[in-house]
Design a binder for these strands. Structure first.
Length: 228
DNA sequence: AGCACA
């Protein structure tokens, strides 16, 4: 898992470096002659002894070229960088099916929850609800502990734990968990991010969380077995 | 479909 994460970081750096190398805008805005006579010029980027001559403009230019490189990187995608295996946007980190688009695009249309890089929000499933149904919570788990897991997610409202008897007479008591979010989109973010979350990373039992959208109880939704 | 609270 650490391996996958490491490769991801490396891919980002290499992609950015490659993009800046070939970006024509960068070549135009950085004439070789400017630091051809400066020993170790490229390493001195951002440092100018005579700031009255060079400061402002060059700072802006550097920012622009970096932005251009990043734009190019975004357009081409991670898999465009030469060499190495492509890193997929939905690549699982340590087996976790984490979709970084959903994580980065937290909140989506809701301007109050903007705080990350804006990305188009993936379509929500038709059964999406603002409440998550969570299975796999250990029996000795407290409400406070579950809250610690879900609280960082934008739109988190509250968590409810419900004790249920095991179907088997000798089984451990089961804990059902419901987590409320403000919007279904915010619930979807937490669902994707915490799917398969290992509650105890040491315990061999390592209860994994299974998250779904809570289904609506009671008479509605087109009758008892209403499939539209 | 081991889905409850309002």
């Amino acid at each position: 898992m650490a391996d996958a994460y490491w490769r991801y970081s490396e891919a980002l750096q290499q992609a950015a470096a490659a993009a800046s190398m070939v970006a024509p805008a960068a070549a135009l805005k950085r004439p070789r002659t400017e630091y051809a006579d400066i020993p170790g010029g490229p390493e001195m980027l951002g440092y100018y002894p005579r700031e009255d001559d060079r400061g402002t403009h060059h700072t802006i230019r550097d920012t622009e070229s970096i932005g251009a490189s990043y734009d190019r990187y975004l357009r081409n995608g991670v898999s465009a960088y030469p060499g190495g295996e492509p890193v997929r946007a939905s690549g699982g980190i340590g087996g976790l099916p984490v979709d970084d688009r959903r994580i980065l695009g937290v909140g989506g249309l809701d301007s109050r929850s903007v705080g990350y890089v804006g990305r188009p929000e993936p379509p929500l499933p038709p059964d999406a609800s603002n409440t998550l149904f969570v299975e796999g919570v250990p029996a000795n788990c407290t409400r406070r502990e579950v809250s610690h897991i879900f609280r960082p997610f934008v739109g988190f409202r509250e968590v409810r734990l419900v004790n249920k008897d095991s179907r088997h007479p000798d089984g451990d008591p089961l804990i059902l968990c419901f987590v409320d979010f403000t919007t279904p989109a915010q619930a979807a973010v937490a669902l994707e991010a915490l799917q398969g979350y290992k509650f105890d990373e040491n315990d061999r039992d390592s209860a994994n969380l299974r998250l779904q959208f809570a289904r609506f109880t009671g008479p509605r939704l087109g009758g008892p077995r209403g499939r539209r």
